[in-house]
Design a protein around this nucleic acid. Structure first.
Lengths: 344, 344
DNA sequence: TTGTATGCGTTATCAA
DNA sequence: TTGATAACGCATACAA
């Protein structure tokens, strides 16, 4: 007489099943899988065979409970659609692929409060590590992170007083360098357009202001911003707004490349010649910048590398290999192209 | 005399701590949190107070082990950078936000083998559900999915014989409709450019072929493809290639909008007038299409809705509410714009 | 090198 | 309505 089997009985292959089949104890199986050296050649082979035959996969929940650790690395980004973050994510997934590390992605949608909830949720899962963006966490988030029992990497920008590790670049300096480029190209009335003023956008604006003031070309009336998320369409609207407020504007530094592309389209629609009548410069240097008509100048940032390096530093630290220095500044590079080549 | 406390002792607040403080049993705390109705008003309040005071957060690993279930919903996408999938992801995260469901994202990088590994890993975590793309899984993946003890949603396209639930649209039909649009706009020598021929791209190409043949305008020499991932830059190259092979081409249907934008740039660089000399049509209708110079025709797809609906269907099914029908076809919409307006 | 006893934090089951 | 007990699957500590 059979009694009804619950799903557990017929579906899950446990370490005990493997042990029984292989004629060893569960502990030996556990060892053979995690610490093969501590098990004799012979039994190891026997066990591996049974594991393959039965298709045994360890239960991460059980193992997390037993060890108090997981292989989960939480990644919190402000946006999953923004190209900037998707490049970073790609770098992260690239390095995670094939490793023991499980990436768990959270989307804070640029909200410190959502970020806080995500951090809390992630921490309850005993992650091995956490990767999150920027320097501007809520007080409660900071508190949680400072007392967290896991390694942490802050990405996207550099600053003082990291929780643990950090990799990024200076948005203030990148933006200032772009501004200097505009000035040295001969533009004297540069404007700035920005969408979604998250902390990094604000620092880029600050960099523009700093450099423009220093060059004596700063004019608050040539700054146009909006809290709306940035799109190419919004680039059109913002530059239109800028030109109506300050028609003598002769260059636009854009908070990012979507805006810059929109600005290009809109200027051309109005019959303005780029770069003669107006110069346009973006930020991030998405690949499309180089093939636009004319090619659009931008500030290149190393997003893919940032993702890769962030995970590499983190996982090495978890393996006991501390990085040479906890803060890595990847820098930036101004890419001058025809859209700002006023003088030839 | 104190003995050294391990991290477990000082960090983790367990259900037992709450129970002790509240003067009830652990079971009652557990009930109070998951099934409040089964606990008296009074003790429930007492417990909630202690939970808040101690900052108790249940350990998902322990709970997973005890119940054999998790709140994890695995999502496997072929790319995290492709705008198409990032929109879908945004929809998914939008609906997941604030719910009990944890999204775990996997990136298969267009590789059936990586997809298989991800499915295996995900399944070992006893997910509540799985969302994955398309109809073309490996045999082993299919086997795993058919015997999986969780709900499954296939997204991005519709087809017969779903594992469980399905939401998408017909790529063949969308592409065929775009082709008919070109023909009805007066183009007689349409070409097709495509990058990364994943299964959906191939079906779009098939749709072009089908419709072009029916209209008597099909010419294999006007098809240019490459396995490289699509970029705007690649759009330039492919259209250049197309024009050198078949200089009389009078329209290009592009496998996606990145290619279409590149095609526009390249054609304009060559002094070709769009739409008079050559028509250009994309696929997906990214927002930038509408503001390009000229605005670019495209086939609109409902990616955000797809993400939202996929997760909604899935979570409702998990809550015991079966969807009206297991297969949802979201359709598409041809968006005619100036880039294909040959006749005015 | 291998095995035994025990505990991780939670929940299902059954009893009170 | 509440509580005691056992079990989930694995790994630590120690013993053999």
């Amino acid at each position: 007489m059979f009694n009804l089997l619950s799903w557990k009985d017929n579906l899950r292959v446990t370490i005990a099943d493997v042990a029984r089949e292989a004629g060893v104890s569960a502990m030996t199986v556990s060892r053979a899988l995690r610490d093969p050296d501590k098990v004799s050649e012979k039994t190891r082979a026997k066990i591996r065979a049974v594991v393959d035959r039965l298709g045994y996969v360890p239960d991460p929940a059980a193992s997390a409970l037993a060890t108090g650790k997981t292989n989960v690395i939480g990644v919190i980004v402000p946006s999953v659609t923004n190209n900037v973050f998707s490049d970073v994510m790609r770098g992260i997934y690239e390095v995670a692929e094939g490793s023991i590390w499980q990436i768990q992605l959270g989307n804070s949608r640029y909200s410190p409060l959502e970020e806080e909830n995500l951090v809390r949720t992630f921490l309850s899962q005993r992650p091995a590590g956490l990767i999150l963006s920027g320097l501007d966490q809520s007080n409660e988030t900071s508190r949680l992170l400072r007392s967290a029992d896991c390694r942490i990497v802050q990405i996207m920008e550099c600053g003082p007083d990291p929780y643990d590790l950090m990799i990024g670049f200076s948005h203030v300096e990148g933006s200032a360098a772009a501004t200097r480029h505009l000035v040295s190209a001969g533009y004297r009335k540069p404007g700035y357009i920005a969408a979604r003023l998250d902390p990094r956008s604000q620092r880029r604006l600050a960099g523009f202001r700093k450099a423009a003031e220093k060059a004596g070309v700063f004019e608050p009336g040539r700054i146009v911003t909006t809290p709306r998320p940035s799109t190419v369409t919004l680039g059109c609207e913002l530059v239109a707004d800028l030109l109506s407020k300050a028609p003598d504007t002769d260059a636009v530094l854009c908070n990012n490349d979507d805006l810059a592309l929109g600005a290009l389209f809109e200027c051309q629609r109005r019959g303005l010649r780029v770069p003669e009548d107006i110069g346009i410069c973006g930020f991030n240097d998405l690949e499309m910048m180089a093939v636009a008509n004319p090619p659009i100048s931008s500030v290149r940032t190393f997003r893919l590398d940032m993702g890769r390096e962030a995970l590499r530093m983190l996982t090495e630290a978890l393996a006991g290999v501390e990085p040479d220095r906890p803060i890595v500044d990847l820098g930036y590079e101004v890419m001058p192209r025809r859209s700002t080549a006023r003088n030839g």
